[in-house]
Nucleic acid binder design. Sequence first.
DNA 1: TATGAATGAGTCTTCATTCAT
DNA 2: GATGAATGAAGACTCATTCAT
Lengths: 182, 182, 182, 182
Amino acid sequence: MGSGETRERILKAALELFSEKSYHEVSMGEIAKKAGLSKGGLFHYFPSKYDLAREVLFRLLDGWIDELEERLEGLSGREMLKALVDAAFELVTSNPKLSRFFLELYEESLKRERGSEWDEFYGRYIGVTSQVLRSAGISEPEKRAILLGAIVDGLALHHLLSGGRLFDVEDMKREVLRIMGV
Amino acid sequence: MGSGETRERILKAALELFSEKSYHEVSMGEIAKKAGLSKGGLFHYFPSKYDLAREVLFRLLDGWIDELEERLEGLSGREMLKALVDAAFELVTSNPKLSRFFLELYEESLKRERGSEWDEFYGRYIGVTSQVLRSAGISEPEKRAILLGAIVDGLALHHLLSGGRLFDVEDMKREVLRIMGV
Amino acid sequence: MGSGETRERILKAALELFSEKSYHEVSMGEIAKKAGLSKGGLFHYFPSKYDLAREVLFRLLDGWIDELEERLEGLSGREMLKALVDAAFELVTSNPKLSRFFLELYEESLKRERGSEWDEFYGRYIGVTSQVLRSAGISEPEKRAILLGAIVDGLALHHLLSGGRLFDVEDMKREVLRIMGV
Amino acid sequence: MGSGETRERILKAALELFSEKSYHEVSMGEIAKKAGLSKGGLFHYFPSKYDLAREVLFRLLDGWIDELEERLEGLSGREMLKALVDAAFELVTSNPKLSRFFLELYEESLKRERGSEWDEFYGRYIGVTSQVLRSAGISEPEKRAILLGAIVDGLALHHLLSGGRLFDVEDMKREVLRIMGV
DNA sequence: TATGAATGAGTCTTCATTCAT
DNA sequence: GATGAATGAAGACTCATTCAT
């Protein structure tokens, strides 16, 4: 008791901070303060900043895929594709700095020779996405899955860079569906 | 205000370093050393790290647009589109960390309340791109220009994340041309 | 106050770690892990790191003297001297970091104003050694006992510093016997 | 100007502190404070604690050998031997924690894979010592040089451990001369 | 122009120890 | 007996920036 709770508090605080600032700009002291425990206590739960940040990100991403899979149940191919695009845009627009955080963490993982930790998530993502595209009757679904991911992330990037002024989100969703689609 | 050869040497050294490591990982001392002058001397040419980095990036981007405009001269609409996609892929693949650098610097500019500095470049980029798309007879060229930029950046991002293993560049170029165009 | 099996497990784990690394480089967490109990549990058996380390060292040294006394029984004066030198070299070469550990702990004891804890051991050591020298018919046995201890420790130190490349152990033993002895 | 002076101030402060406490017990902040500059300033002169400590020790040792060589000029073999023993005892008794400092630093150098830095000093030491022994007509001077170093260091160790109560220094010097000697 | 000395705030991380359970 | 959560102080080191010369 207490154990899991503090951990959650830490993860929540870290998520909030990493959503505001870059990996390197957020300090462990800051996270500890926000989570309401000492710096030493923080290291009791997470052996390093990288490990904490990675858990923050993976929870977010895994949670997103879980939710997506739920949403997709019982839908037709077309509807699935639409739901997928919706979910992808939701993810990146609700958490605009996610791509950047992802990137930073990935580089950090390379530096620590722990790059392989990402394979599982990436595989899962491509798996779900290409499955949806296949169900929608789209040819070469693996390639299109990659393309879809890239487009959504690219749009998120530019959305972020322009402070949301660059394009209308619903408009772009339609465009993406057109590209993917039919 | 500093000009001439030393300035160029600094910019060259900085470009090389920012192509290897993130903004925060490159230190002014490192740049000074690589450029062959003292830290104090470096600050004589550039008032801050941010200003130096921004000049590095803007030179790169402006140079890219200049070269692109040259290449486009005398081409037909279709050929222009192909040349544009080629150039975009060249830029991001020859300098894989560019998107990240761009992102970091943009955030740094926001922190310093100098976000408007980017407008000019972005306007120029959209201008050239949409002009090409218009020449190629594509409808809604502004919107497509944004999309094209996002796709290329998104692909660059994933290319970087996967260490180049994710997709074949030529293959993706064809895909992008298909999306854009015809 | 703690007794029995767990206590032994702790002492064994600590000995192994202190044989590899310096006093300050070995952490209580490490010892606890190796001994298979929690950090809190460890402090249940030993009130401080210093007390644990001191017990490790004193057991080793007392054990060495016990064994030496056994070995000496029934030997002639000359043979005793040889056995003593053998045992001394065995101790320091089988546990090359012993001198360093001894030194560190001694300083730690001074800091804690518990320097007198060492007197008993030192007295016992000088007692046995000078007794042997006296039996071997050597004059000024107390002084020579001190000298012998110093030589063996000094050689151990240099042996350690040179990674064992500095001299041949058997060769030096003969040299020490010559000095002491005959 | 000012350059060399500050450096000397730092080295002096560091020597004093390392003469009181162990390597790990002396902090860079402490040294900086004692030397009268900021922590950052300290790192301007020495890239790491190890490098600073190493320079402190090597200066001491090199200075000792320099002085020894001066003292030896023009002496007969016997006198040289006596002067060598005097100098060795002076070194270790005037700076009782030297052996320990030496040891700590040596281990630190191994951890940093810079163990070879010690070869030059050790070679110089053995060179001078064995030369003296040879001049004094002693057989196997290299082996005896090692032995002499070990004895003196061992005695220093015990002298330190016993707080100087263990033996009379002049008495032991005679003993060492007898051992070495004639 | 150019140097390099100097600052000071900040970084992640370690660790012996305590204590409620 | 035993756990593990939590502390708090300390540690080495980094770095953009300033300034006297």
